[in-house]
Every structure is written in C-alpha cells, then in structure tokens.
Simulated assay, not measured.
Amino acid sequence: MTALGILLGMLVVAALLFVRAFALAHSRGAIICRVRVRDGDWKNGVARYVGGELRWIPFLGLRLRPRRAIARRGLIVSDRRRLATGEGPAGYWAVVCSDGGGPVSLAMSEDALTGFLAWLESAPPSAYLDLDAA
C-alpha cells in the first residue's frame, strides 16, 4: 500500500467518525453530556432518556449502542455544581450521582440539567420501592 492509500483510508475513517458524532449530537431527544466515572477524565458523548434509563453513547467509537446506562430507579444526586474554568465548557454543570454501580459524574448544560432533574422527579411513586426486598 502506498502512503497516499493509507492517508486516504485515514481520511475516510475520520470522516465517518465525524458524521457519526454529528448524527448522534443532532438526533431527536439527544443531549450533549460528558461522563466521568470516579476521578477519571471527562468523556464526551450524547445521552438519551429511554424509559427509566439515561443511556450514554460516546462521540468517539464505532458502536451506536450505549456504553453506559444509568437507571432512574435508585439514582441519588449527591452534589451539583457549575464546572470550574478550564474543567469544561462555560455554563456547564456537574452532577454527582450514585447508582448501584458506584459514583458517576455527569456534565451538561443548564437546560439539560433542568430536564435531567425533571426526569428524576417525574418517576412514578413506585419507582423507588424495592419490591425484591419484601
């Protein structure tokens, strides 16, 4: 293979990844959301509300399936704060949540945060009952 062929192949892959990220970001019902598990780095992606779950798909990757699903049932918001300068985009908020899998931080715009909190509060009363423990 020549250098030109390799370069062309890399450009095609980059273009496909860009088209995938653009399609994810502009699909109906999607919000731009960053995720950080424990003290790792922020990862950019898109989140969608599907039933009782918030499903997160990273921008970079080949799969269109969610890499992380956060269930509304049992989700506890322990902290929320505005992101510090240099930590992320201006106007974004960080929300620290706990689910059965441990702590996870989400970063989103103020509008998306309002929608996220409304989604949490709109759960039916039985959503927080643990019927297996009875």
Rank of each mutant, 00 (worst) to 15 (best):
T2A: 10
T2S: 12
A3N: 10
A3E: 12
L7N: 11
M10F: 08
M10V: 07
M10A: 14
A14K: 01
L16C: 10
L17S: 15
L17M: 13
F18T: 03
V19R: 07
V19S: 06
R20I: 03
A21M: 04
A25I: 07
H26G: 02
S27T: 05
S27Q: 00
S27L: 01
R28M: 09
R28Q: 12
R28P: 09
G29K: 10
G29D: 08
I31A: 11
R34D: 13
R36D: 09
V37E: 07
V37N: 07
R38T: 10
G40M: 01
W42F: 04
W42H: 03
W42C: 01
N44M: 14
N44F: 06
V46R: 00
V46E: 00
Y49E: 09
Y49V: 03
V50W: 03
L54S: 01
F59I: 02
R65T: 14
P66M: 05
R67D: 04
R67K: 12
R67Q: 08
A71Y: 11
I76D: 10
S78E: 07
S78T: 14
D79E: 11
R81Y: 10
R82Q: 12
L83N: 04
L83E: 05
T85E: 15
T85Q: 14
G86C: 08
E87F: 07
E87Y: 09
G88D: 06
G91M: 07
Y92T: 06
V95D: 00
V96D: 11
V96S: 11
G101K: 15
G101T: 15
S105C: 07
S105F: 01
M108H: 06
M108V: 04
S109V: 05
E110F: 02
L120M: 11
E121G: 07
S122T: 05
A123R: 14
A123W: 05
P124M: 06
P125M: 09
S126K: 11
Y128Q: 08
Y128T: 15
Y128N: 15
L129P: 09
D130W: 11
D132M: 14
A133N: 11
A133Y: 05
